[in-house]
Design a binder for these strands. Structure first.
Lengths: 226, 226
DNA sequence: GGAGATCACTTTGGATCAGTTTTACACCGA
DNA sequence: TCGGTGTAAAACTGATCCAAAGTGATCTCC
Protein backbone atom coordinates (compact mmCIF):
# COMPACT_ATOMS: atom_id res chain seq x y z
CA UNK A 1 0.00 0.00 0.00
CA UNK A 2 2.21 2.78 -1.27
CA UNK A 3 0.22 5.81 -0.13
CA UNK A 4 -2.12 4.66 2.56
CA UNK A 5 -2.90 7.64 4.77
CA UNK A 6 -3.86 5.44 7.69
CA UNK A 7 -0.72 3.38 7.33
CA UNK A 8 1.12 2.33 10.43
CA UNK A 9 4.43 2.82 8.67
CA UNK A 10 3.93 6.46 7.86
CA UNK A 11 3.16 9.00 10.53
CA UNK A 12 -0.51 9.77 10.23
CA UNK A 13 -2.01 13.00 11.48
CA UNK A 14 -5.08 11.00 12.51
CA UNK A 15 -7.59 13.72 12.01
CA UNK A 16 -10.82 11.90 12.62
CA UNK A 17 -11.82 9.88 15.63
CA UNK A 18 -11.80 6.55 13.85
CA UNK A 19 -8.15 6.78 12.86
CA UNK A 20 -7.15 8.04 16.28
CA UNK A 21 -9.05 5.28 18.03
CA UNK A 22 -7.62 2.67 15.67
CA UNK A 23 -4.10 3.84 16.38
CA UNK A 24 -4.61 3.97 20.13
CA UNK A 25 -6.16 0.52 20.35
CA UNK A 26 -3.52 -0.96 18.08
CA UNK A 27 -0.79 0.49 20.26
CA UNK A 28 -2.50 -0.81 23.37
CA UNK A 29 -2.58 -4.29 21.90
CA UNK A 30 0.95 -4.31 20.49
CA UNK A 31 2.42 -2.79 23.63
CA UNK A 32 0.78 -5.42 25.77
CA UNK A 33 -1.52 -3.16 27.74
CA UNK A 34 -4.37 -5.26 26.40
CA UNK A 35 -3.67 -8.98 26.41
CA UNK A 36 -4.72 -11.51 23.76
CA UNK A 37 -8.14 -12.88 24.55
CA UNK A 38 -9.29 -9.75 26.36
CA UNK A 39 -12.69 -8.40 25.46
CA UNK A 40 -12.93 -5.01 23.80
CA UNK A 41 -16.23 -3.44 24.78
CA UNK A 42 -17.21 -0.42 22.75
CA UNK A 43 -18.78 1.45 25.67
CA UNK A 44 -15.76 0.88 27.87
CA UNK A 45 -13.29 1.99 25.22
CA UNK A 46 -15.45 4.97 24.39
CA UNK A 47 -15.41 6.23 27.96
CA UNK A 48 -11.72 5.45 28.31
CA UNK A 49 -10.56 7.13 25.12
CA UNK A 50 -13.04 9.96 25.11
CA UNK A 51 -14.85 9.06 21.88
CA UNK A 52 -18.38 8.01 21.23
CA UNK A 53 -19.15 4.35 20.60
CA UNK A 54 -19.58 4.90 16.86
CA UNK A 55 -15.93 5.57 15.97
CA UNK A 56 -14.96 2.69 18.21
CA UNK A 57 -17.14 0.29 16.30
CA UNK A 58 -15.49 1.31 13.05
CA UNK A 59 -12.04 1.20 14.59
CA UNK A 60 -12.61 -2.34 15.82
CA UNK A 61 -13.83 -3.38 12.38
CA UNK A 62 -10.69 -1.98 10.81
CA UNK A 63 -8.54 -3.85 13.30
CA UNK A 64 -10.56 -6.96 12.52
CA UNK A 65 -9.62 -6.52 8.89
CA UNK A 66 -5.99 -6.20 9.93
CA UNK A 67 -6.29 -9.45 11.84
CA UNK A 68 -5.51 -7.99 15.23
CA UNK A 69 -8.93 -8.47 16.79
CA UNK A 70 -11.67 -11.01 16.23
CA UNK A 71 -15.32 -10.02 16.21
CA UNK A 72 -18.01 -12.59 16.82
CA UNK A 73 -21.63 -11.72 16.04
CA UNK A 74 -23.56 -10.52 19.08
CA UNK A 75 -20.57 -11.23 21.28
CA UNK A 76 -18.28 -8.37 20.50
CA UNK A 77 -14.59 -7.99 19.87
CA UNK A 78 -11.66 -9.71 21.53
CA UNK A 79 -7.94 -9.38 20.99
CA UNK A 80 -6.82 -12.07 18.59
CA UNK A 81 -5.58 -15.21 20.32
CA UNK A 82 -2.11 -16.27 19.29
CA UNK A 83 -1.58 -20.00 19.25
CA UNK A 84 1.67 -21.82 18.71
CA UNK A 85 1.06 -22.75 15.10
CA UNK A 86 0.25 -19.17 14.21
CA UNK A 87 3.34 -17.76 15.89
CA UNK A 88 5.76 -20.30 14.47
CA UNK A 89 4.28 -19.93 11.00
CA UNK A 90 4.60 -16.20 11.25
CA UNK A 91 8.15 -16.42 12.49
CA UNK A 92 9.21 -18.80 9.77
CA UNK A 93 7.58 -16.64 7.14
CA UNK A 94 9.45 -13.61 8.43
CA UNK A 95 12.76 -15.45 8.20
CA UNK A 96 11.93 -16.31 4.62
CA UNK A 97 11.15 -12.69 3.89
CA UNK A 98 14.49 -11.63 5.29
CA UNK A 99 16.30 -14.19 3.17
CA UNK A 100 14.38 -13.00 0.14
CA UNK A 101 15.22 -9.37 0.90
CA UNK A 102 18.90 -10.10 1.33
CA UNK A 103 19.12 -12.07 -1.90
CA UNK A 104 17.18 -9.45 -3.80
CA UNK A 105 18.79 -6.39 -2.27
CA UNK A 106 22.39 -7.59 -2.29
CA UNK A 107 23.10 -6.04 -5.66
CA UNK A 108 21.67 -2.67 -4.66
CA UNK A 109 23.49 -2.57 -1.33
CA UNK A 110 25.44 0.64 -1.32
CA UNK A 111 28.27 1.20 1.12
CA UNK A 112 26.08 3.77 2.82
CA UNK A 113 23.39 1.21 3.52
CA UNK A 114 25.86 -1.30 4.87
CA UNK A 115 27.26 1.36 7.16
CA UNK A 116 23.77 2.11 8.40
CA UNK A 117 23.19 -1.55 9.21
CA UNK A 118 26.56 -1.74 10.87
CA UNK A 119 25.74 1.28 12.99
CA UNK A 120 22.50 -0.35 14.08
CA UNK A 121 24.34 -3.57 14.90
CA UNK A 122 26.83 -1.62 17.04
CA UNK A 123 24.01 0.22 18.74
CA UNK A 124 22.34 -3.08 19.50
CA UNK A 125 25.49 -4.54 20.99
CA UNK A 126 26.05 -1.44 23.13
CA UNK A 127 22.48 -1.50 24.40
CA UNK A 128 22.69 -5.16 25.30
CA UNK A 129 25.93 -4.57 27.20
CA UNK A 130 24.37 -1.62 28.99
CA UNK A 131 21.34 -3.69 29.91
CA UNK A 132 18.95 -1.41 28.03
CA UNK A 133 16.70 -4.21 26.91
CA UNK A 134 13.74 -2.19 25.69
CA UNK A 135 15.93 0.01 23.54
CA UNK A 136 17.79 -3.04 22.24
CA UNK A 137 14.56 -4.66 21.12
CA UNK A 138 13.64 -1.53 19.23
CA UNK A 139 17.06 -1.36 17.62
CA UNK A 140 16.73 -4.98 16.59
CA UNK A 141 13.42 -4.17 14.98
CA UNK A 142 14.91 -1.24 13.10
CA UNK A 143 17.85 -3.31 11.92
CA UNK A 144 15.65 -6.01 10.48
CA UNK A 145 13.11 -3.61 9.04
CA UNK A 146 15.87 -1.75 7.20
CA UNK A 147 17.30 -5.06 6.03
CA UNK A 148 13.98 -6.04 4.50
CA UNK A 149 13.41 -2.55 3.17
CA UNK A 150 16.71 -2.70 1.30
CA UNK A 151 15.28 -5.72 -0.48
CA UNK A 152 13.19 -3.25 -2.41
CA UNK A 153 9.87 -5.05 -2.18
CA UNK A 154 7.38 -2.91 -0.35
CA UNK A 155 4.82 -5.65 0.05
CA UNK A 156 7.37 -7.95 1.59
CA UNK A 157 8.26 -5.16 4.00
CA UNK A 158 4.63 -4.67 4.90
CA UNK A 159 4.03 -8.35 5.60
CA UNK A 160 7.26 -8.50 7.54
CA UNK A 161 6.40 -5.54 9.76
CA UNK A 162 2.95 -6.83 10.57
CA UNK A 163 4.38 -10.22 11.42
CA UNK A 164 7.09 -8.71 13.56
CA UNK A 165 4.60 -6.66 15.54
CA UNK A 166 2.47 -9.70 16.21
CA UNK A 167 5.37 -11.89 17.27
CA UNK A 168 6.61 -9.07 19.47
CA UNK A 169 3.24 -8.70 21.17
CA UNK A 170 3.27 -12.42 21.80
CA UNK A 171 6.79 -12.62 23.16
CA UNK A 172 6.14 -9.88 25.63
CA UNK A 173 3.72 -12.22 27.35
CA UNK A 174 6.19 -15.11 27.40
CA UNK A 175 9.43 -13.32 28.03
CA UNK A 176 12.64 -13.27 26.09
CA UNK A 177 15.49 -15.68 26.15
CA UNK A 178 18.32 -13.97 27.95
CA UNK A 179 20.94 -16.27 26.54
CA UNK A 180 20.16 -15.38 22.94
CA UNK A 181 20.84 -11.68 23.25
CA UNK A 182 24.59 -11.65 23.10
CA UNK A 183 24.61 -14.24 20.39
CA UNK A 184 22.19 -12.09 18.44
CA UNK A 185 24.63 -9.21 18.49
CA UNK A 186 27.30 -11.48 17.07
CA UNK A 187 24.98 -12.81 14.41
CA UNK A 188 24.06 -9.29 13.40
CA UNK A 189 27.70 -8.43 12.91
CA UNK A 190 28.32 -11.63 10.97
CA UNK A 191 25.40 -10.78 8.73
CA UNK A 192 26.72 -7.30 8.04
CA UNK A 193 30.14 -8.77 7.27
CA UNK A 194 28.57 -11.20 4.82
CA UNK A 195 26.69 -8.37 3.15
CA UNK A 196 29.89 -6.40 2.85
CA UNK A 197 31.54 -9.36 1.13
CA UNK A 198 28.48 -9.72 -1.14
CA UNK A 199 28.27 -13.25 0.13
CA UNK A 200 24.59 -14.10 -0.24
CA UNK A 201 25.09 -17.73 0.68
CA UNK A 202 26.69 -16.90 3.99
CA UNK A 203 24.07 -14.27 4.78
CA UNK A 204 21.30 -16.72 4.07
CA UNK A 205 22.95 -19.35 6.24
CA UNK A 206 23.20 -16.92 9.14
CA UNK A 207 19.55 -15.97 8.83
CA UNK A 208 18.41 -19.58 8.75
CA UNK A 209 20.63 -20.49 11.66
CA UNK A 210 19.20 -17.60 13.60
CA UNK A 211 15.71 -18.73 12.67
CA UNK A 212 16.33 -22.24 13.92
CA UNK A 213 17.65 -21.01 17.26
CA UNK A 214 14.82 -18.54 17.76
CA UNK A 215 12.20 -21.11 16.84
CA UNK A 216 13.58 -23.48 19.42
CA UNK A 217 13.53 -20.70 21.97
CA UNK A 218 9.97 -19.76 21.06
CA UNK A 219 8.58 -23.28 21.10
CA UNK A 220 10.20 -24.00 24.44
CA UNK A 221 8.20 -21.17 25.99
CA UNK A 222 4.83 -22.31 24.76
CA UNK A 223 2.68 -25.01 26.24
CA UNK A 224 2.57 -28.25 24.22
CA UNK A 225 -0.53 -27.10 22.36
CA UNK A 226 -0.66 -23.39 23.09
CA UNK B 1 -5.66 -16.55 11.39
CA UNK B 2 -6.59 -20.11 12.04
CA UNK B 3 -10.16 -19.70 13.21
CA UNK B 4 -11.40 -16.44 11.84
CA UNK B 5 -15.16 -16.70 11.45
CA UNK B 6 -15.27 -13.97 8.85
CA UNK B 7 -12.40 -15.46 6.91
CA UNK B 8 -12.56 -15.55 3.14
CA UNK B 9 -10.99 -18.98 3.13
CA UNK B 10 -13.58 -20.66 5.27
CA UNK B 11 -17.22 -20.58 4.36
CA UNK B 12 -18.85 -18.06 6.65
CA UNK B 13 -22.51 -18.18 7.55
CA UNK B 14 -22.48 -14.38 7.53
CA UNK B 15 -25.18 -13.91 10.06
CA UNK B 16 -25.06 -10.20 10.67
CA UNK B 17 -25.31 -7.45 8.13
CA UNK B 18 -21.71 -6.32 8.45
CA UNK B 19 -20.28 -9.70 7.45
CA UNK B 20 -22.74 -10.08 4.62
CA UNK B 21 -21.98 -6.62 3.30
CA UNK B 22 -18.24 -7.17 3.64
CA UNK B 23 -18.46 -10.37 1.66
CA UNK B 24 -20.63 -8.89 -1.05
CA UNK B 25 -18.45 -5.82 -1.52
CA UNK B 26 -15.28 -7.89 -1.51
CA UNK B 27 -16.71 -10.16 -4.17
CA UNK B 28 -17.76 -7.16 -6.23
CA UNK B 29 -14.25 -5.78 -6.07
CA UNK B 30 -12.41 -9.03 -6.75
CA UNK B 31 -14.76 -10.02 -9.54
CA UNK B 32 -14.24 -6.69 -11.24
CA UNK B 33 -17.80 -5.40 -10.96
CA UNK B 34 -16.31 -2.46 -9.10
CA UNK B 35 -13.10 -1.13 -10.61
CA UNK B 36 -10.07 0.19 -8.74
CA UNK B 37 -10.44 3.88 -8.07
CA UNK B 38 -14.23 3.77 -7.96
CA UNK B 39 -15.91 5.52 -5.09
CA UNK B 40 -17.86 3.47 -2.58
CA UNK B 41 -20.65 5.62 -1.20
CA UNK B 42 -22.37 4.24 1.86
CA UNK B 43 -25.82 5.50 0.90
CA UNK B 44 -25.56 4.05 -2.59
CA UNK B 45 -24.34 0.66 -1.36
CA UNK B 46 -26.99 0.65 1.35
CA UNK B 47 -29.79 1.08 -1.16
CA UNK B 48 -28.21 -1.38 -3.53
CA UNK B 49 -27.58 -4.17 -1.02
CA UNK B 50 -30.61 -3.60 1.13
CA UNK B 51 -28.82 -2.68 4.35
CA UNK B 52 -28.71 0.52 6.31
CA UNK B 53 -25.69 2.78 6.03
CA UNK B 54 -24.35 1.74 9.41
CA UNK B 55 -23.30 -1.82 8.54
CA UNK B 56 -21.83 -0.48 5.32
CA UNK B 57 -19.61 1.90 7.18
CA UNK B 58 -18.28 -0.93 9.30
CA UNK B 59 -17.89 -3.20 6.30
CA UNK B 60 -15.84 -0.58 4.49
CA UNK B 61 -13.66 -0.12 7.55
CA UNK B 62 -13.01 -3.81 7.67
CA UNK B 63 -12.08 -3.85 4.00
CA UNK B 64 -9.83 -0.88 4.67
CA UNK B 65 -8.05 -3.00 7.26
CA UNK B 66 -7.69 -5.74 4.69
CA UNK B 67 -6.15 -3.27 2.29
CA UNK B 68 -8.80 -3.61 -0.38
CA UNK B 69 -10.28 -0.14 -0.05
CA UNK B 70 -8.81 3.19 0.99
CA UNK B 71 -10.73 5.60 3.20
CA UNK B 72 -9.75 9.24 3.27
CA UNK B 73 -11.15 11.46 6.02
CA UNK B 74 -14.24 13.37 4.93
CA UNK B 75 -13.86 12.02 1.42
CA UNK B 76 -15.12 8.53 1.71
CA UNK B 77 -13.99 5.15 0.49
CA UNK B 78 -12.55 4.18 -2.87
CA UNK B 79 -11.36 0.85 -4.21
CA UNK B 80 -7.63 0.62 -3.71
CA UNK B 81 -5.66 1.81 -6.72
CA UNK B 82 -3.20 -0.72 -8.04
CA UNK B 83 -0.06 0.81 -9.45
CA UNK B 84 2.74 -0.97 -11.23
CA UNK B 85 5.12 -1.08 -8.29
CA UNK B 86 2.45 -2.58 -6.07
CA UNK B 87 1.47 -5.27 -8.55
CA UNK B 88 5.00 -6.29 -9.43
CA UNK B 89 5.99 -6.37 -5.76
CA UNK B 90 3.00 -8.50 -4.99
CA UNK B 91 3.71 -10.84 -7.86
CA UNK B 92 7.33 -11.26 -6.94
CA UNK B 93 6.41 -11.90 -3.34
CA UNK B 94 3.95 -14.56 -4.41
CA UNK B 95 6.61 -16.31 -6.47
CA UNK B 96 8.85 -16.31 -3.44
CA UNK B 97 6.08 -17.79 -1.34
CA UNK B 98 5.61 -20.57 -3.86
CA UNK B 99 9.33 -21.32 -3.86
CA UNK B 100 9.30 -21.35 -0.08
CA UNK B 101 6.30 -23.67 0.00
CA UNK B 102 7.86 -26.09 -2.46
CA UNK B 103 11.13 -26.23 -0.58
CA UNK B 104 9.39 -26.62 2.75
CA UNK B 105 6.70 -29.03 1.61
CA UNK B 106 8.84 -31.28 -0.57
CA UNK B 107 9.55 -33.69 2.25
CA UNK B 108 5.90 -34.02 3.19
CA UNK B 109 4.72 -34.48 -0.37
CA UNK B 110 2.78 -37.71 -0.40
CA UNK B 111 2.03 -39.48 -3.63
CA UNK B 112 -1.59 -38.59 -3.11
CA UNK B 113 -0.79 -34.89 -3.07
CA UNK B 114 1.34 -35.13 -6.17
CA UNK B 115 -1.50 -36.93 -7.92
CA UNK B 116 -3.86 -34.17 -6.91
CA UNK B 117 -1.55 -31.54 -8.38
CA UNK B 118 -1.13 -33.61 -11.51
CA UNK B 119 -4.90 -33.89 -11.87
CA UNK B 120 -5.21 -30.13 -11.58
CA UNK B 121 -2.46 -29.65 -14.16
CA UNK B 122 -4.28 -31.98 -16.56
CA UNK B 123 -7.54 -30.20 -15.92
CA UNK B 124 -5.86 -26.90 -16.68
CA UNK B 125 -4.42 -28.19 -19.92
CA UNK B 126 -7.79 -29.59 -21.00
CA UNK B 127 -9.57 -26.35 -20.20
CA UNK B 128 -7.05 -24.31 -22.16
CA UNK B 129 -7.42 -26.59 -25.16
CA UNK B 130 -11.20 -26.33 -24.91
CA UNK B 131 -11.01 -22.57 -24.71
CA UNK B 132 -12.64 -22.47 -21.30
CA UNK B 133 -10.57 -19.55 -20.08
CA UNK B 134 -12.52 -18.65 -16.98
CA UNK B 135 -12.48 -22.21 -15.71
CA UNK B 136 -8.78 -22.48 -16.54
CA UNK B 137 -7.97 -19.41 -14.49
CA UNK B 138 -9.81 -20.90 -11.54
CA UNK B 139 -7.98 -24.20 -11.95
CA UNK B 140 -4.69 -22.35 -12.06
CA UNK B 141 -5.60 -20.65 -8.81
CA UNK B 142 -6.49 -23.94 -7.18
CA UNK B 143 -3.27 -25.55 -8.36
CA UNK B 144 -1.11 -22.83 -6.90
CA UNK B 145 -3.10 -22.51 -3.71
CA UNK B 146 -2.75 -26.23 -3.09
CA UNK B 147 0.94 -26.00 -3.88
CA UNK B 148 1.42 -23.32 -1.26
CA UNK B 149 -0.87 -25.10 1.17
CA UNK B 150 1.28 -28.22 0.94
CA UNK B 151 4.12 -26.04 2.16
CA UNK B 152 2.46 -26.28 5.55
CA UNK B 153 2.69 -22.63 6.54
CA UNK B 154 -0.77 -21.20 7.00
CA UNK B 155 0.37 -17.60 7.15
CA UNK B 156 2.25 -17.96 3.90
CA UNK B 157 -0.90 -19.39 2.36
CA UNK B 158 -2.95 -16.48 3.65
CA UNK B 159 -0.57 -13.87 2.25
CA UNK B 160 -0.38 -15.77 -1.01
CA UNK B 161 -4.15 -15.95 -1.43
CA UNK B 162 -4.65 -12.29 -0.71
CA UNK B 163 -1.92 -11.39 -3.17
CA UNK B 164 -3.34 -13.68 -5.82
CA UNK B 165 -6.81 -12.18 -5.49
CA UNK B 166 -5.41 -8.69 -5.87
CA UNK B 167 -3.29 -9.53 -8.88
CA UNK B 168 -6.24 -11.31 -10.40
CA UNK B 169 -8.49 -8.29 -9.94
CA UNK B 170 -5.84 -6.19 -11.60
CA UNK B 171 -5.25 -8.48 -14.55
CA UNK B 172 -8.92 -8.62 -15.36
CA UNK B 173 -8.71 -4.96 -16.23
CA UNK B 174 -5.64 -5.38 -18.42
CA UNK B 175 -6.31 -8.70 -20.04
CA UNK B 176 -4.31 -11.89 -20.09
CA UNK B 177 -1.48 -12.85 -22.34
CA UNK B 178 -2.85 -15.43 -24.73
CA UNK B 179 0.57 -16.73 -25.64
CA UNK B 180 1.47 -17.69 -22.10
CA UNK B 181 -1.42 -20.07 -21.54
CA UNK B 182 -0.15 -23.12 -23.33
CA UNK B 183 3.32 -22.59 -21.97
CA UNK B 184 1.80 -22.38 -18.51
CA UNK B 185 0.28 -25.82 -18.92
CA UNK B 186 3.68 -27.20 -19.83
CA UNK B 187 5.34 -25.47 -16.92
CA UNK B 188 2.75 -26.90 -14.55
CA UNK B 189 3.50 -30.38 -15.76
CA UNK B 190 7.24 -29.79 -15.50
CA UNK B 191 6.76 -28.62 -11.95
CA UNK B 192 4.78 -31.70 -11.01
CA UNK B 193 7.46 -33.88 -12.59
CA UNK B 194 10.12 -32.12 -10.54
CA UNK B 195 8.11 -32.61 -7.39
CA UNK B 196 7.74 -36.30 -8.16
CA UNK B 197 11.51 -36.57 -8.53
CA UNK B 198 11.94 -34.66 -5.25
CA UNK B 199 14.03 -32.24 -7.25
CA UNK B 200 13.70 -28.99 -5.32
CA UNK B 201 16.28 -27.19 -7.42
CA UNK B 202 14.47 -27.89 -10.65
CA UNK B 203 11.11 -26.95 -9.15
CA UNK B 204 12.51 -23.68 -7.91
CA UNK B 205 14.04 -22.95 -11.29
CA UNK B 206 10.71 -23.52 -13.01
CA UNK B 207 8.92 -21.23 -10.61
CA UNK B 208 11.47 -18.45 -11.05
CA UNK B 209 11.44 -18.85 -14.81
CA UNK B 210 7.67 -18.62 -14.77
CA UNK B 211 7.90 -15.55 -12.58
CA UNK B 212 10.26 -13.81 -14.98
CA UNK B 213 8.03 -14.49 -17.96
CA UNK B 214 4.88 -13.39 -16.15
CA UNK B 215 6.52 -10.24 -14.86
CA UNK B 216 7.52 -9.31 -18.37
CA UNK B 217 4.00 -9.95 -19.54
CA UNK B 218 2.56 -7.91 -16.70
CA UNK B 219 4.85 -4.93 -17.10
CA UNK B 220 4.26 -4.80 -20.85
CA UNK B 221 0.56 -4.26 -20.18
CA UNK B 222 0.99 -1.35 -17.86
CA UNK B 223 1.64 2.22 -18.80
CA UNK B 224 5.25 3.38 -18.16
CA UNK B 225 4.30 4.67 -14.73
CA UNK B 226 0.87 3.12 -14.17
C1' DG C 1 -28.92 -30.01 48.10
C1' DG C 2 -28.55 -29.80 43.10
C1' DA C 3 -30.23 -28.78 38.50
C1' DG C 4 -32.91 -26.20 35.44
C1' DA C 5 -35.72 -22.26 34.22
C1' DT C 6 -36.84 -17.49 34.57
C1' DC C 7 -35.74 -12.79 34.94
C1' DA C 8 -32.86 -8.74 35.16
C1' DC C 9 -28.85 -6.58 33.39
C1' DT C 10 -25.27 -5.85 30.11
C1' DT C 11 -23.74 -5.44 25.49
C1' DT C 12 -24.15 -5.45 20.69
C1' DG C 13 -26.72 -4.33 16.27
C1' DG C 14 -29.10 -1.32 13.45
C1' DA C 15 -31.45 3.16 12.54
C1' DT C 16 -32.13 7.93 12.51
C1' DC C 17 -30.52 12.66 12.98
C1' DA C 18 -27.80 16.85 13.37
C1' DG C 19 -23.27 19.04 12.24
C1' DT C 20 -19.31 19.55 9.23
C1' DT C 21 -16.69 19.04 5.13
C1' DT C 22 -16.28 18.44 0.43
C1' DT C 23 -17.59 19.04 -4.20
C1' DA C 24 -20.21 20.38 -8.07
C1' DC C 25 -22.23 23.94 -10.61
C1' DA C 26 -23.83 28.15 -11.86
C1' DC C 27 -22.90 32.90 -11.91
C1' DC C 28 -20.11 36.91 -12.29
C1' DG C 29 -16.26 39.52 -13.70
C1' DA C 30 -12.16 40.30 -16.46
C1' DT D 1 -14.06 32.73 -23.44
C1' DC D 2 -11.75 31.71 -19.41
C1' DG D 3 -11.00 31.91 -14.58
C1' DG D 4 -12.53 32.76 -9.92
C1' DT D 5 -16.12 32.88 -6.48
C1' DG D 6 -20.17 31.83 -3.99
C1' DT D 7 -23.93 28.93 -3.13
C1' DA D 8 -26.21 24.58 -2.72
C1' DA D 9 -26.46 19.77 -2.75
C1' DA D 10 -24.41 15.59 -1.42
C1' DA D 11 -21.54 12.82 1.43
C1' DC D 12 -19.15 11.78 5.53
C1' DT D 13 -18.66 12.09 10.73
C1' DG D 14 -20.27 11.59 15.15
C1' DA D 15 -24.11 10.98 18.60
C1' DT D 16 -28.16 9.14 20.61
C1' DC D 17 -31.89 5.82 20.71
C1' DC D 18 -34.31 1.44 20.60
C1' DA D 19 -34.50 -3.36 19.80
C1' DA D 20 -32.37 -7.86 20.10
C1' DA D 21 -29.22 -11.12 21.77
C1' DG D 22 -26.33 -12.83 25.33
C1' DT D 23 -24.78 -13.40 30.17
C1' DG D 24 -25.30 -14.22 34.82
C1' DA D 25 -27.69 -14.58 39.05
C1' DT D 26 -31.41 -15.95 41.67
C1' DC D 27 -35.27 -18.61 42.58
C1' DT D 28 -38.01 -22.61 42.37
C1' DC D 29 -38.87 -27.34 41.83
C1' DC D 30 -37.41 -32.06 42.06
Amino acid sequence: MPNDPADALTLDPAQNSVDQATRLIREDILSGRIAPGDRLKTAELAKQLGFSTMPLREALRKLEGEGLVAIEPNRGATVRKLDRAYITDLFELNTELRVFAVRRGMAALTLERIRELEALASEYRAQIEAGEDIAAIETNRRFNARLVEFGGNREALRVFQRGWDTIFAFRRGFGYGTGRRRVMAEEMQLLVDALRRQDATAAEAILRMQNAAMMEDLVSRIAPEG
